[in-house]
Nucleic acid binder design. Sequence first.
DNA 1: CTCCATGTTTAGAA
DNA 2: CTTCTAAACATGGA
Length: 258
Amino acid sequence: MPELPEVETFRRVLERAATGRTVTGFENPDRYVTRPHRGREIARALAGRTFRGFERRGKLVIATLEPDGPALLLHFGMTGEPVPLAAGAPAPAFTRALLRFHGGDGVAFRDPRKLGRLRLAPSAEVPAGLGPDALGISWSAFRETLRGARGGAKAVLMDQGRLAGIGNLYSDEILHRAGIRPGRAWSSLGESDLRTLHRATRAVLGTMVRVEADWDRLPRGWLLPRRGRDGTCPRCAAPLARTAAAGRTSWYCPRCQR
DNA sequence: CTCCATGTTTAGAA
DNA sequence: CTTCTAAACATGGA
């Protein structure tokens, strides 16, 4: 599920379930999900420490603990999610690791496809190579970070090193709202296109965070629920077109998007 | 059985 | 050197 709005929702879930809680165990870690660490290493680094808070940059969540020491980085990949667990409750299917707290409750890291990752970082610093967070980004920061980008518009929006948090689905929604085709050369965009993209980015991500990334609460007129074969444009009803951009399937309206 | 998938990284090809 | 595509990763669901 996770692009920025989902991950922000996960961050809040973690904040509620784990802030102020002391870790007593790190159970059943999946080797692939915890790479390059062994589960024991993470368990040892967290045991006895208390979660202080959860920050987010793009799709990455950074958990800090006290006393000071290594931070826990959570990336949810394509199918990851945190699932709070009451004491004694069974872990859900596809649990790849389980944080246990003093008192017996905990949070499961559920991830069927195992493309998510749990790893340690020496500090709470945001790892190098991530651009500014896309949620609520200012116009000046938006223009600055995307200046001189090359390639297709969709690829640029999804480049985590330029702008952190936008993935395949929301880039389609943003581009549709902005009236720009996914494959449109970034270099062909003018100042007004950039302004439109900035507004569309803020509107799409802001709205999704507000509804806690719940697809049942999508506003009317959005592309997302129509994405797919037989889909039609929510604005002009033209059949949607499919193309490959940045290595991913994208859907757009050939009539509304130029 | 086949195809597709909300992410990231890397090897190759253009 | 730059840019783009395909594959790989591990697995589930349609």
